[in-house]
Design a protein around this nucleic acid. Structure first.
Length: 460
DNA sequence: GGAACTCGCCAC
DNA sequence: AAACGTGGCGAGTTCC
């Protein structure tokens, strides 16, 4: 892609950003090499046991026979051929090239217990790959991930060698295995600051939808809670019992809708990923259990008259229509307007002074400027903290960044000052520098114990 | 023997 | 009518 800053200030942001990132790259992140070495063996053992278990199944022997002994359990291609051509199972999911898929979602739905062993092994293999990456890239006990500003078409950053922006987090066990490897310098602690709801807030700077601004400005309001109530037809929202449904609404409906997805995919995603419900007709007792109740999500939905994925999809269709027509009409209008601008001029401009051009679809023309400008808020904050860190000669260092967050290796005595500074830079200075930010911005802080590791991160 | 591709999976 | 944005990386596979 071609970098396309339209103003000296925009150019300057990248120039200063590269220099600040270079300092973080040079600093690096400390790795517990003893741990990595031992844990890789442990993970290998785990994988071997699962492999042995799988090798004792009939499915394995059929597969081995089908490929004349040249079986490779790491090969999705081979598995697809065996399942869909040899065994003639009808795929429930297809890849972009139209072949039967063998990812987790596809295999789970085949209801073949033997395949669960294979899927479990894949989890550990992922962990092994991450640990191996740290080991391969470390130099005298430190990894030095690169943070690139010239590779992403939305003007976000990328990271490599190792990629510091995709270390497992969601799967608790795999997260623990991987993040335990990253530690602070002696006597220090790892701290992460992250912007709350950054992309949603920056999007609001473009479309200025009053309902969205209300959600952002009123700390008592909660868009995801409201959507959970609507989607799952809750009479009363219980913070602990229904938190999983709030997560489902947020990550399965609200965010995909903002990215340009539609109700069909959202319904499938929410039913499968979050509620653990099958694609067929739902029976009572299926799916996740609502915390503190002897009551599953299917019990609840069936009682509300929704007893299959088809019913649920119809339901989400209505909610989508309401979402864009009644809840966020100005946001919806902005999306159409922005797409028309792209169609007329062939480019869209970011609020931060950059231009996106080239062939784009509607979703791109809406997503790129939001993603880019949101990241630039994080970049500006990174640059400013880096500048202050040098000027005040902190024994605290910026060591990484993940789109809307900054990771630091902090001297404990400096922690209060670092937090205070970060809150001021992100919450006040940034808005003063960029008056187009018409929404409040704030950061959440997470920290690890002194001499702890990155898996021990907790909210302040 | 390496480049290019596909697939799957991790993050935001 | 059609239908999810941005990356990196490993492994397997195919092509030249």
């Amino acid at each position: 892609m071609t970098l396309n800053p339209q103003t000296p200030k925009a150019y300057r942001l990248l120039h200063d950003g590269i220099l600040a990132f270079a300092r973080a790259e040079q600093q690096g992140i400390r790795v517990d090499l003893d741990y990595v070495e031992k844990k890789k063996i442990w993970v290998t053992n785990k994988m071997d046991k699962l492999e042995d278990h799988f090798k004792r199944t009939n499915l394995y022997h059929h597969w081995a026979h089908a490929v004349k002994g040249k079986i490779n359990i790491n090969s999705g291609t081979q598995l697809a051929h065996f399942l869909y051509n040899v065994k003639k199972i009808e795929p429930v999911k297809f890849t972009v090239t139209g072949k039967g898929a063998t990812d987790e979602e596809a295999l789970k739905q085949l209801n073949i217990p033997e395949l669960d062993i294979l899927l479990d092994r894949t989890r550990y293999k992922k962990a092994w790959d991450v640990l191996n990456g740290f080991e391969k890239e470390q130099v005298t006990g430190f990894v030095h991930p690169f943070f690139n500003l010239h590779l992403v078409r939305t003007y976000r950053s990328s990271s490599d060698s190792p990629n510091f922006q995709n270390i497992p987090k969601r799967d608790e066990e795999i997260m623990q295995i991987c993040r335990r490897a990253l530690v602070p310098r002696e006597g220090h602690q790892l701290v992460e600051i992250d912007f709350s709801g950054l992309e949603v807030r920056i999007a609001a700077c473009y479309h200025k939808d009053p309902k969205m601004l209300e959600y952002i400005n009123d700390p008592k309001s909660d868009m995801h809670r409201d959507m959970a109530i609507q989607i799952f037809m809750l009479d009363k929202f219980d913070k602990t019992k229904h938190n999983i449904l709030r997560q489902a609404a947020k990550n399965g409906f609200v965010f995909p809708e903002f990215y340009g997805d539609y109700f069909g995919n959202c319904a499938i995603g929410m039913a499968y990923t979050w509620c653990k419900l099958p694609q067929s007709k739902w029976d009572r007792g299926q799916g996740i259990t609502l915390d503190g109740d002897n009551f599953t999500i299917s019990d609840h939905l069936i009682a509300k008259g929704i007893s299959s994925l088809d019913d649920f999809t119809d339901h989400i269709r209505v909610i989508e229509k309401d979402f864009w027509e009644n809840r966020f009409p100005d946001y919806a209008e902005w999306k159409d307007r922005w797409w028309k601008i792209y169609q007329k001029y062939g480019y869209v401009d970011l609020l931060t002074g950059f231009r996106c051009s080239g062939v784009m679809g509607k979703n791109d023309s809406i997503n790129y400027p939001v993603q880019g400008a949101a990241f630039h808020c994080n970049l500006w904050t990174f640059i400013e903290l880096d500048r202050i860190m040098q000027k005040e000669k902190w024994d605290t260092h910026l060591i990484g960044q993940i789109h809307d967050s900054i990771i630091m290796d902090v001297h404990p005595a400096e922690l209060p000052h670092v937090i205070e500074t970060a809150k001021r830079v992100a919450g006040t200075d940034l808005r003063n520098a960029w008056p187009w930010i018409i929404v409040p911005l704030d950061i959440d802080i997470e920290y690890c114990p002194i001499d702890g590791n990155w898996s021990e991160k907790v909210k302040l």
